[in-house]
Structure formats: structure tokens, C-alpha cells
């Protein structure tokens, strides 16, 4: 059984204080843990569940519902490539194929060097600039295979 860091616990307690039922912070607790650890391991989830006062199963029910909670280790940079309609119309498929082949991974996988995890994501709200993706928290728009190569090179 691992313990969460003080910073994590404090952040979770803060979120708990914002709702009339502290259990409502279940989702935030997962996000806090993920922010600090990159992903949510079984042990970290159990520890977070204890802080919030819910059972691990309850937390798992929530964690596995939402796609932005990672229950498996991810690379240093998570690439989320928009696969929704506007990006689809503006060249998503080409960008997708290029990303997959240049990284040598499929959706849901992480490069062997642990640098990138590639995930599909639905509409990023960047539709006027598609194709679009996020790497970490940064949006990259108007993607082309060439742009993708330049962008990936920026990440360690």
C-alpha cells in the first residue's frame, strides 16, 4: 500500500471541500494523482480512494468510465490526435498513418523509449484549424506529415 504525497492529499482535500458530498471529488482525486504520477496505478488508486472515502471498486468504476484517466503507464508525452469529423475532412487519416509509422506504434501504445503515447481523441474544439492534436497540454493545428515531424522533434 502506497501513500499519496502531501501535495496530492492537499489537492484532493481542496477538491473535496468544493462539494456538499466530499465523495464527489472522486474524479478530481484521480486527476490529481494522474497529474503527479502521469498515470493512476492500482496502488495509487486505492490510496486516493481512501482519501476520498470511497471503495477502490467505486473509484475504478469512475476511472474506467472516463477516457482522460490513464490506468496504464503512459509515455512522457501523450499525443491525442483528433479523429472527429472536421479533422477527418481536413486530412486526419494521412496524419494518423504518418504518426503511427514514424512512431512505430498503434493507438493505445507507447514508444519503446517511453517518449510518446499515441491516443485518438474526439473533437478537440480546434475544428477551424484541423487536423489537430494535443501533445501534453499544447495544441498543434493545421497538421501535415511534415509539421508532425517538426513537432515531434520538439519533445524530449
Amino acid at each position: 500500500m502506497i501513500e499519496l504525497s502531501e501535495a496530492e492529499i492537499e489537492a484532493i482535500h481542496h477538491e473535496m471541500s468544493l462539494y456538499e458530498d466530499p465523495g464527489a471529488a472522486t474524479i478530481e482525486a484521480l486527476k490529481v494523482v494522474q497529474e503527479h504520477r502521469g498515470w493512476v496505478s492500482d496502488e495509487a488508486m486505492a490510496a486516493a480512494a481512501k482519501v476520498v472515502g470511497v471503495t477502490p471498486t467505486q473509484m475504478e468504476a469512475v476511472a474506467t468510465f472516463y477516457n482522460l484517466i490513464f490506468r496504464q503507464p503512459v509515455g512522457r508525452h501523450v499525443i491525442m490526435l483528433c479523429d472527429s469529423i472536421s479533422c477527418y475532412l481536413t486530412g486526419y487519416e494521412e496524419v494518423r498513418d504518418h504518426l503511427k509509422s514514424s512512431l512505430g506504434i498503434d493507438f493505445g501504445q507507447t514508444t519503446e523509449d517511453g517518449r510518446f503515447t499515441l491516443l485518438p481523441i474526439c473533437c478537440l474544439g480546434d475544428c477551424d484549424k484541423g487536423p489537430s492534436m494535443r501533445v501534453g497540454e499544447t495544441y498543434h493545428s493545421h497538421l501535415t506529415p511534415e509539421r508532425v515531424d517538426e513537432i515531434l522533434a520538439e519533445y524530449e
Binding site: 468544493l18 462539494y19 458530498d21 465523495g23 464527489a24 471529488a25 472522486t26 474524479i27 478530481e28 484521480l30 486527476k31 476520498v52 468504476a61 469512475v62 468510465f65 472516463y66 477516457n67 482522460l68 484517466i69 474526439c122
Partner: peptide, 26 residues
């Protein structure tokens, strides 16, 4: 207060959104 969602389009449906805000499955 600001609540950051953890994904899923269905959260936009107003009643699912309330479930999500309560920390449950949307």
C-alpha cells in the same frame, strides 16, 4: 467553482453532467 471533466462526450448531456459532477459515472 470550476470542475474539470475527465472526458466523455456524454458529460455534455445535462443530466449526465450532474452525475459526473457528483463524482459518478456520467
Amino acid at each position: 467553482h470550476l470542475h474539470m471533466s475527465a472526458g466523455r462526450y456524454i458529460c455534455g448531456e445535462e443530466s449526465a453532467l450532474l452525475s459526473a459532477l457528483e463524482g459518478r459515472r456520467a
